[in-house]
Write a protein that binds this DNA or RNA. Structure first.
Lengths: 187, 187, 187, 187
DNA sequence: CATGAATGAGGTTTCATTCAT
DNA sequence: TATGAATGAAACCTCATTCAT
């Protein structure tokens, strides 16, 4: 793996653990095993690393979920696949997922500039459910339950509060959310 | 209001808007209308402000929810009151609530030192529901849905995504969460 | 004298001796007897010092020459006074004058943003001479002779190449330039 | 043209446009189309480029003017030829001429090390005119007028302030300077 | 000859904190 | 109590130079 990717990798780790401002360029350099100056051969600024990480992983999650949705046939399958792929990404890329949440929190308004925001997929999904008459809950509220639950399930699993296999947790969470939003199993 | 309280007030505003690291002592001083040095007459350090704000507002939210729970007679009333008082606090003290979330994000590990963590109340509440046989969902998952939804409802309301009166939103959210966790209206 | 003025004074000295890029903020701080950080309580950036010095001294020279021109009665008196006051300023503020030339050389295009450029006064003066029929030389060429000579007279005097009293040098130079541009004494 | 010469050429362009400190080795490398490391195959250091450029072009101008002087028969012809060849060099090698001026500004004291300083030729020329009784002006002052005017004529022509053909400007300037220094046409 | 990654010294800037007044 | 100047450590960044390939 090239130095550039190593920098991104270590930066992601550090950012997601300590926060962005709390991580210095020197911290990143040390983690990679190079000097500060070398960082700037690969990135114009610390901020560029910050943005590139967001774009990359936001895009990866977006693509992952989008593909899952596109493969599915019926609305329930779409929803379940979306939620499962979302959680799957989070579990497999915990640093990236933590980082995305952190980034959203700290750079709320700047986020709009980016094209692939996974949140938009979930929003569209909920909207679709509404249009097709599945939704039993006000869509905005549904979205709050959906996104809030996803983040917390990840968090509590990471913290060790939620036991069991990740695969089962994914399935269980997806089914629960489907039931919540549609009021029962229509599968 | 004394200078000390003004400092806390402005610091809270700035911290919750921009972040803690992103807010300088000078920013706070200017917002209050005093100079940097004066801050140190009232607080030993910036960190002291940070922690005091957390303790104050975390405690306030904790007390508020606890009192609501204690007043209630039956389990459903307890739950509904807890959720409503929680959201009520958030809507009435948006800076404080945003700050608490932000603080948690960035200082995850240090939080354990504090005695009054609202999260613990919600956890106990869910546990109680389980013991009394109301809970239809695994308690940890229930907790994830509960806390995740609360945060997002606040967030989306603040962002203007959720319309309607706050009072109704509170009621609706509480009822929805009750239904989710217990599987329907037992009231 | 306040620290702010001391900073400007020492910066001017250093800039005019060594160049702007060649002078570090630390050099300035040391010359003043403070630390680097203290500089930034008084100026937003090194560049602000650079610009403020130009504005101040460019403005001072401009005002000085303008006043001299306004006091004079006839065209010759105007010209002689302008040249003499120009050289007088240069001799009395050698650092400032060296700095102005340096700044022009390095920031040619940025100079246009500033309102009080002494060069403009000389240009207008030559133009006036032309309109009134005194000028025997093409005005642009006249301007080249005028400004070029002024700078070199200052430079050679500073280097010790030109002997004699400054007062006499001023007078002699002014008279010579008048003769050059008008073709003889019309006084 | 070999890489070495390309480096000198591009460095000269950049130095004269932006300044020496303001031009990085990387800038030069990019302009040439090679990488930074390659520069060091041809030059020991950036400073070596700086000095070599000075020596080359200072020498070229020196030789050019010297040859013109040597070809001339009488004093006036010497003077006129010197001035014309000087301006001719400047107009044909504007980067080099700008660079020489810039270099003088910033490295004033170190210049003495070099053997071929065009200024010395002009100085000797003026001295000769004095010895032969042509000079009507104090020699040091004459030198100031001469060198100052030459630099400004170049500068104003470059800036577009002086119109007309370069050839005519050269002739006109030379004649004007002759008249100034000797008090009229003795040709 | 050339590349391109890396170094390391040093530059500008920020900021929590101290202190004389 | 408050000011405001100053400190000093540490942050981000630049760049001439070196070096393995």
């Amino acid at each position: 793996m090239g130095t550039r990717d190593l920098i991104l990798e270590e930066a992601l780790k550090l950012f997601s653990e300590r926060g962005i401002k709390e991580t210095t360029v020197r911290d990143i350099a040390r983690a990679v095993g190079i000097t500060e100056g070398a960082i700037y051969r690969h990135f114009e600024s610390k901020d560029q690393i910050v943005y590139e990480l967001f774009e990359t992983h936001s895009g990866a999650l977006y693509d992952r979920v989008k593909k899952a949705i596109e493969k599915a046939k019926d609305p329930k399958d779409k929803f379940i696949s979306a939620v499962e792929s979302f959680l799957d990404f989070a579990f497999k890329n915990p640093d990236a997922f933590r980082y995305l949440n952190l980034f959203h929190y700290l750079r709320g308004k700047e986020v709009r500039k980016f094209p692939k925001i996974p949140f938009q997929l979930l929003k569209a999904l909920v909207e679709e459910l509404r249009e097709e008459g599945f939704l039993k809950v006000e869509p905005e509220l549904a979205l709050a339950v959906l996104t809030g639950t996803l983040e917390r399930v990840f968090l509590y699993k990471e913290m060790g509060m939620l036991k069991g296999r990740k695969k089962e947790l994914r399935t269980k969470t997806a089914q629960l959310l489907w039931n919540i939003l549609t009021g029962g199993d229509h599968g």
